[in-house]
Design a protein around this nucleic acid. Sequence first.
DNA 1: AGCCAGCCTTGCAACGTTGCAAACTTTGAG
DNA 2: CTCAAAGTTTGCAACGTTGCAAGGCTGGCT
Lengths: 346, 346
Amino acid sequence: MPTVRLRDVAERAGVSVRTVSNVVNDFVHVAPATRERVHRALDELGYRPNLAARQLRRGRSGVISLVVAEIDSPYFAELAAVVVRAAETRGWDVHIDQTDGDPDRERRMLSGPLGQQVDGVVFSPWALAPAELTQRAPSIPLVVLGERQANGQVDHVAVDNVAAAHDATAHLISHGRQRIVALGLQPHLSNETARLRQQGYRDALVDAGRSLDPRLEVGVQRLHRSDGAQAVARLLTEDVSFDALFCFTDQLALGAIRALADRGLRVPDDVAVVGFDDIEDGRYAVPSLTTVAPDKRQIADVALRLLANRIQDPAAPVVDFVAAHELVIRQSSDPVTIYPNHAGGS
Amino acid sequence: MPTVRLRDVAERAGVSVRTVSNVVNDFVHVAPATRERVHRALDELGYRPNLAARQLRRGRSGVISLVVAEIDSPYFAELAAVVVRAAETRGWDVHIDQTDGDPDRERRMLSGPLGQQVDGVVFSPWALAPAELTQRAPSIPLVVLGERQANGQVDHVAVDNVAAAHDATAHLISHGRQRIVALGLQPHLSNETARLRQQGYRDALVDAGRSLDPRLEVGVQRLHRSDGAQAVARLLTEDVSFDALFCFTDQLALGAIRALADRGLRVPDDVAVVGFDDIEDGRYAVPSLTTVAPDKRQIADVALRLLANRIQDPAAPVVDFVAAHELVIRQSSDPVTIYPNHAGGS
DNA sequence: AGCCAGCCTTGCAACGTTGCAAACTTTGAG
DNA sequence: CTCAAAGTTTGCAACGTTGCAAGGCTGGCT
């Protein structure tokens, strides 16, 4: 496979290297005849620009990095898919990095994954405290997803977690549920998202004149289905009574439903379940899962727009964007619902 | 953010640029004292190598590309996660590309995604005929996942799809199922995988002395849950009678289960369901999903090993590796099963 | 005819790194 | 004490591209 360089094309077309470069980059002021000739040589030789050289010269790579905890978590996978598609329209390539929710790895990513290889980072923190984010920010254009950082020093896109959790909880209350569990605290991590959802849950209970019961606030190690299943199993073993679950992620909710089914408990008749994220699994689960649906498309679009701005003007004012969310009511919390929201392929 | 170059470090440490490079690359023959001094300068200035320059000079990027149809498909997401982790141990970064199952985009990826930016490609084709794969291969080290290409011209890792489909179908037969649907043909695509699974399905029926019924071989447009749900809905509308479904992917199976539940059909009592892929959703679905589980870890490990070999020696003999698979029996095909395979988080 | 403006093309240098091989220093053997 | 071998450090050039600015050419205007 002979690597074809501008020089090779130039020789073939009988022009200078610079002119070929001009054609490749669609510069003005190239005579149509020349352009034509160069294009032919380009095609014949199958030229493909060496991005390393281009980047070295231009100082830009056209690659951004998306940093998430784990790419095999459906929420992150779905988010990654929309980010990649949105990036395409901007001519960007996306490099996906996993941190496995490890604070150290998250920290390392902040100082720039891939060396100076990437022009910017879209970062979905999981275990890192907001303070750390702002502290490390300046080294590279950065947009943070989720969480919320008090002192707006970094561009940021997220749903209003407190309001969303409030909505979900209020929905359960309005359907007559008496003992609602909040499932998904992560006290061992600086997981701001979990904290905000807990806040919304409490607010809703207080607003409804209910009292808080610490036994109904349940922590998990991680956020997989197995954690949800185990947590519910524990609750049942410990004879904590409850008739509803507000799970901080859909994965937890699906695991929880699984565990309830194993114990012969019916959803939603015995226990109503609400999740968070609107992953595809939930739409097709049996019963289908009521959930808070963040507008992922919007999150991706806005994040990339902010990142583009930040790259262009590092001194631009910081933006804190609140993305839309919607409570999608399905079978798991509402016996009346038959089969809503069936459409929507991927 | 001042970009720190080798030169800056060299000045600070009072040595030549070349020596700093030697230290960074852990070359032999650097005096301990010098090494120490350079290391300090490195730390103090926070040097990070410019990978573009390094790649330009070395001709290697340390990045490989993983090309899949869609990253938000759980199977691909889970596969991507193991590939990324396996790559890490080799010091490689992984660039993930989506083709959306578009033949043109798959073709383009073959001629080298990202310019000459990547050292090799792990490619999971979906819509491309095997012939095309071998034809285009030589431009870049390549390992193909899934499918099967007749004339071993490309390194290749896959489960034995025929045998696996045979296992799944035979399992349903042995449980007394009479009319077994094969769900997931893709006649409009050159999808070899689907063809092989169909083959295994037919073989199993023939082996059991059953006759083939074309009405029980059902095609789908794509492989999402919605396609599975729609296909089942159609079958029921058209009054095709069946008591089992062998779905070519777990996603189809989960969609199918959803549709069956909507029509009041019980799984597995009325209809037994088997999927393929062993995605996490299936383990926690209600009922939990019987499935063919390819050894994803092994697939990723072997694929990267082959790729490393190929990069090192482009002329090495071609390897065709058959990865392990296992039929995991859960509730959806076996009323006796209570709650197997609960463990195993992600 | 002379001149200017605009169009088109080009050569040079530099981006930050490492391969190469030369040059210098130290060590040890004879 | 000399010389070779081994250890250590260095300058130069090149990887393929594009920014810069200069140069050549053409055509239109006076």
